[in-house]
Design a protein around this nucleic acid. Sequence first.
DNA 1: TTGCGAAATGACAACGTTGTCATTTCGTTA
DNA 2: TAACGAAATGACAACGTTGTCATTTCGCAA
Lengths: 333, 333
Amino acid sequence: MDKKNVSMNDVAVAAGVSLKTVSRVINEPDSVRESTRDKVHSAMETLGFRTNFAARSLKLGRYGCIGVVLFHLSGGAVDMIDGIADAAEERGFALTMIKKRAGEKMTLADAARRMSQLPVDGMIFNLRQMVDDFDTFEALKDLKTVIITPMEHPTCSTVSDDQEGGARMACEYFLNHGHKNVYFVSGKKESLSSQCRMKGWLAALKAHGIEPPEPLQGDWNADSGYAAGLVLADKPDCTAVLAANDCMANGVMMALRDKGLSVPDDVSVIGFDDELYKTIPNSILTSVKFRHRELGVRALNEVVAGLEAPSSRSRTLVSGVLIERSSVKDLRA
Amino acid sequence: MDKKNVSMNDVAVAAGVSLKTVSRVINEPDSVRESTRDKVHSAMETLGFRTNFAARSLKLGRYGCIGVVLFHLSGGAVDMIDGIADAAEERGFALTMIKKRAGEKMTLADAARRMSQLPVDGMIFNLRQMVDDFDTFEALKDLKTVIITPMEHPTCSTVSDDQEGGARMACEYFLNHGHKNVYFVSGKKESLSSQCRMKGWLAALKAHGIEPPEPLQGDWNADSGYAAGLVLADKPDCTAVLAANDCMANGVMMALRDKGLSVPDDVSVIGFDDELYKTIPNSILTSVKFRHRELGVRALNEVVAGLEAPSSRSRTLVSGVLIERSSVKDLRA
DNA sequence: TTGCGAAATGACAACGTTGTCATTTCGTTA
DNA sequence: TAACGAAATGACAACGTTGTCATTTCGCAA
């Protein structure tokens, strides 16, 4: 019965004004007389008018949308997306999202090409693992591209947690409390987060002239931490353990206890992400927390700032915070 | 120096063909001679042509995008978004996302209005708490709307985990194992998940003619579970505890142990979400797991299926699964 | 070589907005 | 009341595609 889409022209006819006046009511209401405005408004109301995004964008030459490519969707990603979305909202942008499917192989170039066919003025890549064309990739000109990744990129702006710095901070915290060495339990090998955390640990120890012990390989889950803890319990020189996340840290602590050792009296432990308190009552685990929300906000702001100068390039690091609880013993006493 | 946007016309001129032929190379390549196609392709390559989304959508009258409104962004949301995104990908759709900001008040009508100005053919609302206009809301016609929520909606299609059924299943599991009653620890009051889980618990007990004990109020975190556990430890008739999530279940278990009770020998426990194993080594907690990913897939499919008939209405429930471990003792023996 | 039907290509309008510029209407002052 | 400048409104083109329909080119049989 009724027409599919109500256009400005329909509204104009109904209100007895010109199409351009309807346009003005929407975009510069002050420039039209109040009586006219009311007529137009009620016509819009009656007909159920909604501005057509496609036509508007076509004319304006921009979309008001930022593309987000999720190469990987992990736990911390929620808060990051939250930050991106809130910041976008605040600046009047919506998000256009695509995701790498499990098993699918997607390069940065693939992602950029696909995104460029969608309604976006700029884009953000969330990249937590290495990708083949990382170093050779060049963003499409006139389409600002920001990569969320700990790696430095030759031409694109990047934003990252300072994971390396966070790990260094945790190590120094141990050393400042009189520990002479720090053991490390890593996450999955292919994870850049794990790699960076390990790098920070290595750097801190070397900076103090300490020979780092062999790191123990974990997989983020508690069971792998428990296995590592069993091994560490037998090392007499092990007084401090840095685990690449809280779940593994918890596994380590439980193994140590099962072996008759006390945390922190016999061995001190620090984790990452500060989420153990959600699952363990009265959690004592000291942990390095990253501000994922802030990370998202920064990434979005960087894109928006770069809309006018897509080829600009910057590198943003969002520092971590050490949440102090009681899992680290002060050996200096 | 170079023009801002390369249009099909530019490509046509460069390739020495008509604009329409370029269009055909893109949309129906088989209808154009191979030699022509090659000319066009190389012209596109040279000029860096990318089809203009706005113009294309304007002409076609559709976008190939599904809107997602996040009223609330919780942990389980990651998997759900993952499912939505994968299913969208598979069916050739991208996602357009907006989010309710913390503190902001957003009704369904608000969300629908905002979305309708964006490039979307249909939309999904993720709604985990009650909202003022839930019962009165009517979706915009010709814009299929699916709500992810446990509540039934008068006019819109809804998709949900069967939380109530999951809770019932867990209760019955206790009862089938010879337990005579089941205590319940709830999540945050305003959470619909918590409300549904409680409803299922009540329903199961009543169906067996059991008078439900007073539920204990928690807040999803372990500490609140621990507090509840301390209370429950003093109830001699308490042999079975259903906690609205795994974190609280863990809190309950630790409190019971601290009070000298054994799980499952003295008290049996079941949780929800099956995520404790990530944090606790050798976790014994039996838990009801919901398939959030599947939930997202169903929601997206429902939208896409409804694109042609936006006013159709359906209700989808995705059942939960009981992951059996050893935290429930069989009292029948 | 001619003629014919099918395949390939092209010209032009249309989608629903906004920008440019011209025209009309209004309120004010002489 | 006339004249004027400012405010309000309108006519028309343009954004970059795709659909419709007309035209050209091709391959093949007579």
